[in-house]
Design a binder for these strands. Sequence first.
DNA 1: TATTTATCATTACTTTAACTAATGTGACTT
DNA 2: AAGTCACATTAGTTAAAGTAATGATAAATA
Lengths: 299, 299
Amino acid sequence: MRKLPPLNALKSFEVAARHLSFTKAAEELFVTQAAVSHQVKALEDFLELKLFIRRNRSLLLTEEGQEYYLELRDIFEQLAQATDKLRLVSERGALTVSVPPSFAILWFVPRLSSFREEHPDMDIRIKAVDEISGSLTDDVDVAIYYGDGRWPGVKAYQLHEEYLWPVCSPLLLDKANIQEPIDLFKQTLLHDETRNAWKDWFQLVGLPQYKGDNGPVFSHSSLALQAAVHGQGIALANNVLVKSEIDSGHLVRIFPQALQRNKAFYLVCRDNQAEIGKIATFRQWLLGLVQKEEQEFNQ
Amino acid sequence: MRKLPPLNALKSFEVAARHLSFTKAAEELFVTQAAVSHQVKALEDFLELKLFIRRNRSLLLTEEGQEYYLELRDIFEQLAQATDKLRLVSERGALTVSVPPSFAILWFVPRLSSFREEHPDMDIRIKAVDEISGSLTDDVDVAIYYGDGRWPGVKAYQLHEEYLWPVCSPLLLDKANIQEPIDLFKQTLLHDETRNAWKDWFQLVGLPQYKGDNGPVFSHSSLALQAAVHGQGIALANNVLVKSEIDSGHLVRIFPQALQRNKAFYLVCRDNQAEIGKIATFRQWLLGLVQKEEQEFNQ
DNA sequence: TATTTATCATTACTTTAACTAATGTGACTT
DNA sequence: AAGTCACATTAGTTAAAGTAATGATAAATA
């Protein structure tokens, strides 16, 4: 039927053309430079034309090579996308979600059983990651990001309205005689890595002179909350993350003032994958759950 | 970088999906059924899902397989096109032209030297073919078709206005005393395989009762003209094909009546290749030449 | 119901394609 | 002039693809 060029040679060519170097291409392909040289030569022999101009220290594409490369790049891109998509259209098999650790522990994992009930065929693989940037990598299908909702190349769906509340354990509240914000000056403040949060809160309640920088700093807000549960001080907690500890009575909210931060947790996926099978299923479940919980809260 | 599926396995899959049969796919790929089976299995293993549902006498695609197949088909189509194009963008290397034999001998080949002069880097490979249908095959880039200009999937450019003229050698005309069309009744008529041409011509000149079916039949009009040159009878000749023999005086036109047939020679190429390098170059030369010759004729 | 047939799967083996290691080549660098 | 960098080449190895033979299954046929 069709007489297609040697496909594996095309792959070598595409990579070599992208790097304009056989040596670098070989690294990317985990083969030797000689292998790339062979493959490119085989392709050139098949096509009966030169794709590269070999200068001694530099490699450049011929006109034909340049044109072919651009088309091949698109073709391989399409192939990669079609293949990605394939993995995601079926309801069976796993979906990998990257989640910030605190959100995972305090909110996401406790709610996962509801997903398993609704979608027993679909497994969720959770990957806790600290760095947002670049966490939507090859092996990750969707992610939870914390931020302002503006990230390039992705679709982001906000989950909750979020605030920061001062919280502490009921025991501490009993014995410490905390009536007004100014009473916190004598207390240990617990910090996570969101900088200046306490300072901003004191500003909010009309105490701008206090920096609120005493007390231990935890790498993750879940650790700060854990410390608060154990009566080690007052934490400034995200309403979403702290919800279950408040519901269970392990922590109490000690003032009505809530600090708004223009940041929230977002469900994030690649722009062009938003509507495909598993990803849409997962999004519907997650956004539905958030909505349901907010309705219950407002009743 | 990207983790692409095994490319050769994709090819086997695409063919198998097209035929819905491993056996037929194997035939197309010139391998055994087992080879296709292995390749498809390897692909399914890589993707971790089934592409086919194997029933005992029938093979069908799973939903995922169907979706993947449709995308792959497009991708391979694009690849084939990009590769074809590549061969044709460069001015170097050959362009293969399929030409009906008579047109080749009488018109095309004699004019080829002008092309070589204008485009010394570009070789023309001529393939004389009798059958128009399907002559624009894999190995042929452009073709000359004879017909009404309507063929699906191709671009067709008409070359000349065409008519049929009665012609014979000057010697025969001398000795045979031919004054009016009715005098041809006593002459040997030479036929090529365009059926009913003489009959139609007699109808044109008001002699519908004569079928004009005596005389030898030649498989190609060039042979009929060759017979006419040797004084063996009167031929009904295409004005384009006979031009050089008339110019040289080997044949003379014996009546002014010209039979119109709504058919002509066309330059034909694949729809989507009309504007690429060599093909456009060749078309410009050919159409330009035709136009120049017609201008000279009209002066 | 038994037999044949068509089609894909599987296994053990062979062939071919891809890759490697070592070395060569030519031009720029120092 | 010696060193280095990057691709080419050659000969030999490894891995992928393919084959041949056989097995399994279910539909078609007798």
